[in-house]
């Protein structure tokens, strides 16, 4: 194995590559989701910020991507109420309610995933 490959691969390359494949990942996400049980919290990745989680027990509106997205958090789940992205995929995803389900906004680099007392640790297929 040649160590040169890993040396050349810096942090910027990593971030770049991660977001280049985001488009294809959205499709994969669609099939990957639905890990089952009732969700307890929502994990939020907003651009390059560190991911964080919010409980579903405290309904509220959250501004993401510097106000380009409005996420509504309710007891049963979350949905994107407003987004300025051209595709509107995130808005059309609608409300997600089950653990493992995600909403992705590619242009705004936002990923929202439901977590909680799910029945399964992962899903294959």
């Amino acid at each position: 194995m040649k160590p040169s490959i890993s040396c050349k691969f810096n942090r910027f390359d990593l971030l770049l590559s991660l977001f280049v494949v985001l488009a294809a990942a959205a499709l994969a996400l669609f099939f990957l989701s639905h890990a089952g049980g009732e969700a307890g919290e929502v994990s939020i990745r907003d651009g390059d910020n560190a991911p964080y989680s919010l409980t579903l027990d405290a309904p509220r509106r959250v501004q993401l991507a510097d106000g380009h997205i409005t996420l509504v958090i309710e007891r049963g789940g979350v949905y994107v109420e407003y987004a300025d992205c051209p595709t509107q995929d995130c808005v059309r995803t609608g409300k997600i309610t089950r653990t493992g389900e995600s909403i992705v906004c590619l242009p705004n680099r936002v990923v929202v995933t439901l977590e909680g007392a799910g029945e399964f640790d992962a899903v294959t297929g």
């Binding site: 991660l18 494949v21 985001l22 294809a24 990942a25 990957l32 994990s43 977590e115």
Partner: peptide
């Protein structure tokens, strides 16, 4: 803890 990232055209999660 759960680490999520995109690679190989898919979303990867390691718990």
């Amino acid at each position: 803890e759960s680490v999520q990232f995109f690679a190989m055209d898919t979303l990867m999660t390691i718990t």
